[in-house]
Design a protein around this nucleic acid. Structure first.
Lengths: 99, 99
DNA sequence: CGTGTAAGGAATTCTGACACG
DNA sequence: CGTGTAAGGAATTCTGACACG
């Protein structure tokens, strides 16, 4: 019932900073580099989800491993790419079975 | 792993107002009447959980039914009372079985 | 009793920029 | 490249009070 709390964008950047251990500056920068996508209130304040908390923690780990933001972004793109290909593969398989 | 997101106090009163449909005034008043228990940031701003969202929606329904805040509070107390008694009952039963 | 509102102040957040490297 | 910081302003939140009822 109702999309999970995990994906509701309701957390301000100050709380995010506490939850992730990252500075607000870092979080804003990762948004600039298209690694997270907060929503905005009417006034313009950022709103994050718990899913974003998890994502940022992962990003923080990769940064510690010396990875650069563009590499992390590439990796994410690749992942969804793989997912796309797998989906297409399954769809193809399904169609073939119907022949 | 880690206590559920549902109970994490991370939502500001403005967002709470949007999520519940209640005014900030109402939410603060219900806190004053001991119906919800937000945490506070260092600066003093309130922080609520998704569980609080659910609780406030229930409270709103009861208010619409003409119930008064003290009655709602009494009802909640009674509920935990019942739970206590049930627990005690089960504990007693368990002890008797050991005799 | 429950809620709206104006009031003044404090905490929070925002952006663009400079700095270091 | 990634992040800290000072700067000025805007959005958000806080409390105590008056009002109505």
């Amino acid at each position: 019932m109702s999309l999970d709390y995990k994906d509701k964008k309701v957390i301000s950047i100050g709380i995010m900073s506490e939850l992730t251990g990252l500075s607000e500056r870092q979080i804003r920068y990762y948004e600039e580099r298209k690694l997270v996508f907060p929503e905005r209130s009417k006034g313009g304040t950022r709103k994050f989800s718990f899913a974003d908390v998890e994502r940022l923690v992962e990003i923080a780990n990769k940064m510690e491993d010396g990875m650069q933001t563009f590499e992390i972004r590439k990796q994410e793109v690749k992942k969804s790419d793989v997912r796309d290909k797998m989906l297409r593969g399954q769809l193809n398989a399904a169609f073939k079975m119907r022949k």
